[in-house]
Every structure is written in C-alpha cells, then in structure tokens.
Nucleic acid binder design. Structure first.
Lengths: 205, 205, 205, 205
DNA sequence: AATGAATGAGCATTCATTCAT
DNA sequence: CATGAATGAATGCTCATTCAT
C-alpha cells in the first residue's frame, strides 16, 4: 500500500468518521426538537459550524434523516433476524425481540425517536417508502409470532392479536422518549419490567 | 323572548356552531399531518375557504390548537374526576380510567392525537404551559393509583411503578393513531383487550 | 312640490348629512393615526358600524380621503382668494393669510393634518394630482407676496424668499398637530404670536 | 497583529460597513416613501438584493429604523450637549442650537425626516419609547432657553414661550423635507436665513 | 342601511439551499 | 473544509373590498 493510497484511505476513513459524528449530532437535535421544526442552522450550530457548511457533507436535510433512519433500520432488522433465525419458542422469541428492542433504544435512542415520531410525516415522500415497508414487515413479524403463540398454547386464547400487535408496536418504542442511558435502570431491566407487565399482567396472582 | 333577542341568540349560536365546525376540521388536519407542518392554507382548504378567511373566526393558528386542546383537556379531566370521586377500589378505578380514556379517543380522536404528538413542541411556548400541568397531574394520578394498588394487594409487588406508569401513559393514547370510530371494534372492546393485556398478561394461564 | 319629491329631497339631504358625519369621523381617525396605517375597520368602528358597512356610503378608503381633502382645499382657497381679492397691502395681506390659515386649522384640524402629513404619500397616485397643483399655487401666492413686500419696502431686503417661503409653508400648518380648539389659546391669538415672531422677530428691541 | 487577527478584524469591519451601507439605503427609502408604507422588498431592491436577504443582516424592519433613529439621536444629543456645556449666552446658544440642527439635517437628512414624520406612529410601540423621551428633553431644552432669554432681556417680553417652542420644534426639522445637500444653499446659510427670520423678523426696520 | 362572512392580493419573516471565496 | 452572503419559495397574517341577506 503506497503512502498516497494510505493517505487517501485515511482521508476517506476520516471523512466517514466526520460524517458519523455529524449524523449523531443531527440525530440528537432532530430527536429532541422534532425533524420538521429543526432548522439546518440548529443542527450546524450543535456541530459547531455554520448552516451552509453542512452542505459540504450532506446533500440536504432530508438526506441526513434518510441516512440516520436507514442505518438504524438496517441494524434493527439484523438484530431481529438473528433472533428469528435462532429457532426459539414463541415465548422466548417474544422475550428476545422485546429485549433487542430495548437494546436498540439504549444504543440508538435518537434514531428510535425520529423513527417513532417522524415516520408519519416522512412517509409522505417516496424517498422514505422503506419506512412503510419496515412497518409492514414489523407487523407481519409480530402477528405471526402472536398467532403462533396462541396456537401452541403460549398465549391466551381470545386475544385480538391485531389489537395487541398495535399496542406492542407503539409501546416498545415510546420508551425512547424517556429512557436515559446510564440512568437508574438498564435497558435489560426495563425490558424485564415491560415483559412482566405484558406477559404476566400487573395484577398480583 | 323578543324577536330581536331570538335573532341575536340564533346568530350567536350559529357563530359558535361555525367555530366548532372549523375547529373540528382544523383538528383533523392538525392530527393527520402534524400541527407544525400543517399550513393555515391547508386547514382553510379543508374547510372550503381561503387562508385569510380563517382569521375572521380565529386570531391565529396557535389559538386554534389552543382551543382544541383546552376543550379536550377540560372534558378529559371532568371524566377522570368523576371516576376518581366515585370511591372505587384500585382495580375498578384502573379499569374505569382506561375505559374513559378509550372513550375520549373515540370521541376526540384528533384532539388526542394532537395532545400526544405535539405537546412537546407546543410546550415550548408559555401559552401552552397547561399541557405540562396536565401531564404532571396525569402522572400523579396514575402513580398514586399504582402505589395504592400495590399496597392493597391488587397489583403485583415488585413493579417499578415509575416505569409502568410511563408505559401506561403513552400506551393509552397511541391507540388514537389507529383507532377508527365505527370500525371493527368499539372503544369499550379495545379497552377490554387492553385491560386484559395489562392486568392479566397475555400468557395463557 | 309633491310629497314624493319632498321625501326624496329630505332623503338626499339626510344622506348627505350622514356622509358628512362619517367623513368627519374618518378625518379624525386618519388625522390621529395616519391615513396609511388606519384600517377601514377602525374608521367604521369609530362611526359605530362594521367595516363592510362603510362601503354603502363610499366607494373606497381612497375616496374618503379624497372627499375630505378636496372639500378642505376648496374652502381654503375660497378664503385665500377673498383675501387676495381685497386689495390689501403686503403686510396686511400677509397677516390676513396667516390669520385665515389658523382659522382653517381651527375649523378643519383633521383635514389640515391629513393634508400636511399624507400629501407626499397620496400624491403618488394620479387621483391626487390636485394636491400638487394646490401646493404649486400656494408656493406662487407666497412667493409673489414676499417679492412684492420686498419691493415695496415692507419686508427686509436680502431675504432669500425661496427659503422663507418654505419655512412659512410648513410652519403655518404644523400648528394643526398640537392646536386644540377650545384650549388655552384661540386661533387668532396663536396667529398673533406667530405673526409677531415672523414679522418682528423674537429678539427684544 | 497576527494575520488571523487582522483577518477577523477586517471581516468584522467589512460587516459593519455593509450594515452601514444597507442602513443608509433603508433610511433613504423610509424617508422618501414613509416607513409604514415602505415594504421590505422595496428596501432590499434599493440595496440590490431580494427581500429575504436583508434578514441576514437585520432582525426585522423595525430593528432597521430603530438603529437608524437611535444612531441619529445619539449624535444629535452629543452635538446639543456640546453647545449647552459651552456656557454661551441665550442668543448665542439659540444660534448655535439652530446651526447644529441644520448641520444634522445636512448630514442625516433621511434620519431627520424619519424622526419628524414617523415618530408618532413608531411611538405606539414600547421599543421606541426613547423617541418620546428625546422629544421631552428637546422641549425642556428649548423652553429653558426661551425662558432664560426672556429673563435676561434677550428675547421679547410677552412671548408665549409654549407656543414659540412648538413652532421652533417643528420648523427646525421640516427643512429636512426640502433641503438638498450640495444644493444652492449650504446648511449654514439656511441657518442664517432662518435665524434672521426668527430673531429679527422679516419686516424691514 | 347595515351585517357578517368571505375573498385575494400583499406583507414581514423564515429557512433550506447555493456558491464564490 | 468552512464561511458568509445571498436566493427564492413558502408561511402566518392583515386588510381593503365584495356581496348575499
């Protein structure tokens, strides 16, 4: 590897790292203030630069969220797919998916918040049709799991799985709104509380 | 009542009715597209008029959401207070509050969605400080109920009521995002499914 | 004269009277707030009616000022012409013109203020070209008088009549800004003070 | 001084200069058309840019007049204060104040016109309360001078100083409406004409 | 005569985006 | 890489004006 190539390699790596830093900053701002009402200037200021300078790194404000969300969804589905491929029973799969979800919140809180809060708005653009695809896949995953669990006797008969799915879908992610990494509870502890509530109910037995 | 008085009464009533109609339209648009990104022109178009015409009826875009949200919150707290004042046990109170919430969703779906989705953004303005007040009251209501229920043996010991409250808070309202009045399920049926899930868990016993 | 004709006559008179009332009100509002920034609604409210109702009486906001100003200018020039036609000497003419001016302020304060403050703005429209004509005539009247007075030994030699005229032009009318009919000083007393200042100077002799 | 510091200094200076240019342009437009009826687009066009671009330099249309007027008033009072502090007699003070005023007109004609024409309108906003303060100070300055001059025998006994002050106040500034720097007469010559008129009167003696 | 509701053009202002330096 | 100045489309809002009642 020539010096020149090493230079260009390290430059490319440095550039990728800078992009990642900027995206992390942007994600934080988008998450805390809302994508639509956040100005490019605000993102830039949080990154210590002026508004126009961001355009050296990114095509547009839209391409920033795009990158944030697609990176997140890629990682999320990789995690879910690992769980689904591991051949666990309904209950264990349920627990593993919920645990994975809270780990995603732990590691990608801003992205999760953006996904949760801005999907509806962003989906109106064809560029973000993958958000709808992801939601549909998410729906099928949970519905199949719930149906399987009812059939194999894991889950209560008589559940309206369509309704339950909807509650699960939203509930899993809303924790991103209040969870703080390094706070009183770890992601796994929160997952445990959540699983107890959903699986066993909150009534004393 | 003289003709003059009847006239002025019917005029005032007609005016109030028109306002209510327009607010209902505005609420629907705000709810489906998001308050911040909805333009006044869009609201007006949905109401069959031009942008400027709305200002004959309302002071500002802000005053529209204000009216929508405060009317909703007033009614919501009236319903909650009725439940709280009726001296039910923890479990019955829990059930009644959840049922009331789903009835609110049934009758004020757009307002609930706006409350759920836009509170964070709106709260940055002092005009909407009552949203924070309401949230705080909501928090205390549920925490007290959960704590009471744990003490009197209704709810499972070992619950982190802080965590459970947060899930409840969000979960109750997200249904506004998908519930359709007149759909397959009534509000009461959805409440029942939800209560089963939360109180008894979804595991078969 | 038939009853019908008398009716229509009295109706026409009543209408003219109403117009005059409304114009007086409009003049007052235009004068105190400024024509451009006064809304039709404000004028209407001052007249005890709603914005749209004024359009039963007048074609437009513009036609209101038009009527106010042309009525005023007509009367003003009638007064000036009477003075000019009476064959007085330079000094007496000067005094009489100034006295007439202050009487105009006394009787048509709002119109004078509008004339003074809004001429520049209104003159940009061809409809108000008569304002420029009036100003030009005013200029010639004073310049001729000053020149005549210098020639006949009444006024000081060495005066730059162009400059003096400009001061006179503005000074005569600005009193409209603070004069209050029925206040401490009558219009004639103010005219006397003004004439002393201009004719004899304020230095003690 | 390092290159870096010189750069930043020249940048800041360039920026200040640009602001000053734009303010001068804005002042001219506000003065000639009237502040309220001048649109931001007109100011921008006069500066060779588009409406929105002005907001890179200024917060609002209001902040532009604010800056124009407060800069003018600061300089005006500095000049007046120099005169007042120099211990001249009544007559010389009078002459010096008038001369200073015409020099202000010479150097800040647009600002003087805005001050003269728009004060009433702007004063309705608390932001411009300093305009009223300045007017009040102006009033006291002249009244004290007139009173002093009457007492020490400089000015004619029997003058209604309240009335004379009002004429002076307006008269001094209206020249801004027609004075053209570089025209036939210098500011000092106009001041001389004005002083002759006011002090000695226009009658031949 | 007057009302009340609506129109539509125009305004101040914001903001994503561009680009010469 | 980043700046700073500018663009231009879009937004909330105002207001003279119209018109059916």
């Amino acid at each position: 590897m020539s010096a020149r190539r090493r230079d260009s390699a390290s430059t490319a790596a440095a550039r990728a790292e800078r992009r990642a830093e900027l995206l992390a900053t942007a994600a934080e701002v988008f998450a805390s203030r809302g994508y639509a009402v956040t100005t490019v200037r605000e993102v830039a200021e949080a990154a210590g630069m002026l508004g126009g300078s961001l355009y050296y790194h990114f095509d547009s404000k839209e391409s920033m969220v795009d990158e944030i969300l697609s990176a997140f969804l890629t990682e999320m589905w990789a995690a879910y797919d690992r769980v689904l491929a591991s051949g666990l029973g309904s209950r264990e799969t349920f627990q593993a998916l919920v645990a994975e979800s809270f780990r995603m919140i732990d590691r990608h809180r801003p992205a999760v918040m953006i996904y949760q809060n801005e999907s509806r708005y962003l989906s109106t653009s064809p560029r973000f049709s993958y958000l709808l695809d992801s939601q549909e896949r998410f729906r099928q995953m949970w519905l199949e799991l719930l149906d399987r669990g009812v059939l194999d006797g894991t889950f209560r008969v008589g559940l309206d799985t369509g309704v339950i799915y909807r509650f699960l879908r939203d509930t899993v992610w809303v924790a991103a709104g209040w969870y703080r990494s390094g706070g009183r509870l770890t992601a796994d502890e929160i997952a445990r509380q959540y699983l107890t509530m959903i699986l066993d109910g909150i009534l004393s037995t």
